[in-house]
Design a protein around this nucleic acid. Sequence first.
DNA 1: GTCATTTCTGGCAGTGACTGCCATCCTTGG
DNA 2: CCAAGGATGGCAGTCACTGCCAGAAATGAC
Lengths: 207, 207
Amino acid sequence: MRENSTSCLRVRTRRAVKEALADTALELFEASGFEQVTVADIAKAAGISQRSFFRYFGSKEDVVLGDRIPTAEEVLAVLTPHLAAHPAWEALRLTVRSMTQLMEVEAEAERWKQAVRLICRTPGLRARYLERHLAWVDALVPELTSRTGPGGARAELKAQTMVNTALSCFDVALTRWSDEEGEQRTLAALVEEVFGFVRIPSEEAGV
Amino acid sequence: MRENSTSCLRVRTRRAVKEALADTALELFEASGFEQVTVADIAKAAGISQRSFFRYFGSKEDVVLGDRIPTAEEVLAVLTPHLAAHPAWEALRLTVRSMTQLMEVEAEAERWKQAVRLICRTPGLRARYLERHLAWVDALVPELTSRTGPGGARAELKAQTMVNTALSCFDVALTRWSDEEGEQRTLAALVEEVFGFVRIPSEEAGV
DNA sequence: GTCATTTCTGGCAGTGACTGCCATCCTTGG
DNA sequence: CCAAGGATGGCAGTCACTGCCAGAAATGAC
């Protein structure tokens, strides 16, 4: 197949350029702050045109948030099996824990940590980050609604509450994790601790 | 005093113009969607220059979010007395309930409802809205930290979790409320129901 | 009423993020 | 070597937003 060999090499090059571009940009952001750095600055530092920058990243914010954040489909794929074997809140906890492990293992932990710190420090980025969370909520709620009890509207309300609460817990853990410099605490351990603060009584076994 | 009489009249005019401007803009947003409407459109429809628009609203998003959303200081002022008389989680619940009542009473309920619907429908607005929530979190967490237990870092972590969870509950209730057309359910009642799903065990009375 | 001060206003130019279009490469498979 | 397709750069244009400036209007002191 022609397309295969072509893309095999092209894709690799493309990915390498994208990686280098992200490195350059993050370095500049770290030094001068996200908003102070213009796209023109990044492009010049990376030796490409401004136009090409937007061929690699849909927006300036994408350089930071980029592909690091799982899509709604990925999260849903993690949730579904857990949901088959556990009650709803437990399944959410396990899902969040699985995601943290994905993030830490990938040898990009330090870069991800740097990105999260940048996100927490920049309101605009933080907002975009939360926007992605919303996509997760929309994807997870329907899956959960049927499991949270009988009542239609009430079940959906509870599902929304649970998902939002779980993501809040994740957010708190992630923020704290990115701030801890000296301590070696695992993100997963922080998630466990934060989830330990919250109880969601189950209604599945009867009222 | 000269400045007093001046501002007394000027401020009133200014407020009226701002109100009319917001009405015009919301009408356009409702009809064509937030992103489809340009600032130039709003200005033309309101009969002012584009430049003047930005003298009344700091950004296009401010027309929707505007002054409707309480500031961090206001929320803190509501929380503090509750915190003196109740355990932390209970105080947060009462605080959220108080805020809902503020929003419903003000005879602007329908307009606020319309705004919330617009916010929920527009990702960018939703993100900005959540950004304001973050300001609340930053303001409320310090006040709560001392009340959530003895341990320093752990207490702060728990406080962050509680505040974020409470705001999630508020958010879920508000979203549902804005969607309900026929039903006459109170926002406060919805808040009660949503908070009913969540338990935050207190550690204050001993480990 | 007159005058000086303050405030509001529109216009204009400029920045910064982003997009569409087009000409030009440069790689790749045949 | 050649044709096809992807990658690139440049250019013009949109949109949100800002600073600057000059003119109009309201305001307060006299």
